[in-house]
């Protein structure tokens, strides 16, 4: 009888699925560190190395990275969970421009060198947050990156104004500033150059040249590598990853970007979390960053590969909006921008 058989199949399927699903829950015995992080830290970055090594050092500890979205989406998720009082996250890795929002909600614990000894080796210029709620572990510069096999040097835009030319129609892939820290930084960069009154006008003209606005850097860069467009918003250090993809310094600039890690206020494992941050800042992990994150390590004692020093470009004119300004106006810029990209007006 088909009917009865179906019923049994459903029942057995239900029991198996339920028990199977819940058997995952009791996998770990000891304490678990949950780290919310952007996607590229997992798919390109040193997540695996960090997890393995840290778990080796602290036996019984399990590190679990959660990277279900780009950086700012992870932050939004953390805020939502934090406000509801039930986030499993112990640590968060994110970008400098997220600090204002994090502070507004009091997400992170202020730290000092006493908590994280390796912080002493981080140069003062990187310590953008006086309270040290997010402590820097890597840094670099947002620039455009182009595919040298698709664009010849004479075809390249030199300035932001050049980029508006019709010859670049649908040639650029950018990230959504609402969900991506890279996209947000690029938005801030246009504000830096065109001011809070002119940036929307710039973007309006830029829209025809944008092929797509991707939710995060990972997706954007993957499309770029697949050859969908010859230019993408990325980092000045990318040539080290693949010499074919070269940085394109508009107006000779690069927008400063610093990534930091913080401890979520509601963590059950403050001691272990501090150990994790210290480990993240240790030369051992820091020296991995050029090869994985393709970024400059924050620890000045970390040695970088020679080739990286050669290929990673430091823009002659690094720029950055003061964080206070971002804190004050960032949300408004973002909302206006979001409206613009949807309406085109």
């Amino acid at each position: 009888m088909l009917r009865r058989a179906t019923l049994w199949v459903l029942l057995i399927g239900w029991v198996l699925a339920l028990s199977g699903s819940f058997s995952f829950a009791q996998a770990g015995e000891g304490s678990k560190l949950v780290v919310y992080v952007y996607q590229s830290f997992v798919d390109y970055g040193p997540a695996k190395f960090v997890k393995t090594e840290f778990e080796k050092r602290f036996s019984g500890v399990e590190v679990e990275f959660v990277a279900t979205g780009p950086s700012r989406a992870m932050l939004a998720r953390l805020v939502t969970e934090f406000q509801a009082g039930r986030t499993p996250a112990d640590l968060f890795l994110g970008e400098i421009n997220d600090v204002p929002k994090a502070k507004k909600f009091g997400l992170f614990v202020p730290l000092s060198a006493a908590d994280v000894p390796n912080l002493r080796d981080v140069p003062q210029e990187l310590l953008f947050d006086p309270e040290k709620t997010l402590i820097p572990y890597e840094h670099g510069y947002i620039t455009l990156v182009y595919d040298s096999e698709k664009l010849k040097p004479e075809e390249l835009p030199k300035t932001f104004a050049d980029l508006l030319k019709p010859q670049y129609q649908k040639k650029l892939i950018v990230q959504d500033a609402r969900t991506s820290s890279v996209g947000y930084a690029f938005l801030l960069w246009t504000v830096y150059n065109y001011g809070s009154l002119g940036y929307l006008d710039y973007w309006r003209q830029l829209l025809p040249n944008i092929l797509t606005i991707q939710p995060g850097w990972s997706a954007a860069y993957r499309l770029f590598r697949q050859g969908e467009a010859p230019m993408v918003v990325s980092f000045s250090t990318d040539a080290y990853f693949n010499a074919r993809y070269k940085p394109l310094l508009l107006n000779g600039q690069g927008y400063r970007t610093i990534y930091g890690a913080g401890i979520v206020r509601t963590t059950d494992n403050p001691r272990l979390s501090r150990e994790f941050l210290n480990f993240l800042l240790s030369p051992e992990v820091q020296e991995k960053l050029p090869d994985t994150e393709v970024m400059f390590p924050a620890n000045s004692k970390a040695r970088v590969p020679e080739k990286f020093a050669q290929l990673a470009v430091v823009p002659p004119n690094p720029v950055m909006l003061p964080l206070e300004m971002v804190a004050e106006q960032g949300d408004r810029w973002l909302e206006e921008w979001a409206k613009l990209i949807v309406t085109g007006r």
């Binding site: 399927g13 198996l16 339920l18 699903s21 995952f24 997992v42 798919d43 679990e64 990275f65 959660v66």
Partner: peptide
């Protein structure tokens, strides 16, 4: 059954979750 940070879960568990949630909700 290995955890994937990009999914925030193990792929197999996502499959099983879909099945049991679907059946429970249907019931």
């Amino acid at each position: 059954p290995d955890y994937d940070a990009l999914l925030g879960d193990a792929p197999l568990r996502a499959v099983l979750n879909s099945l049991w949630v679907g059946l429970t909700a249907a019931l």
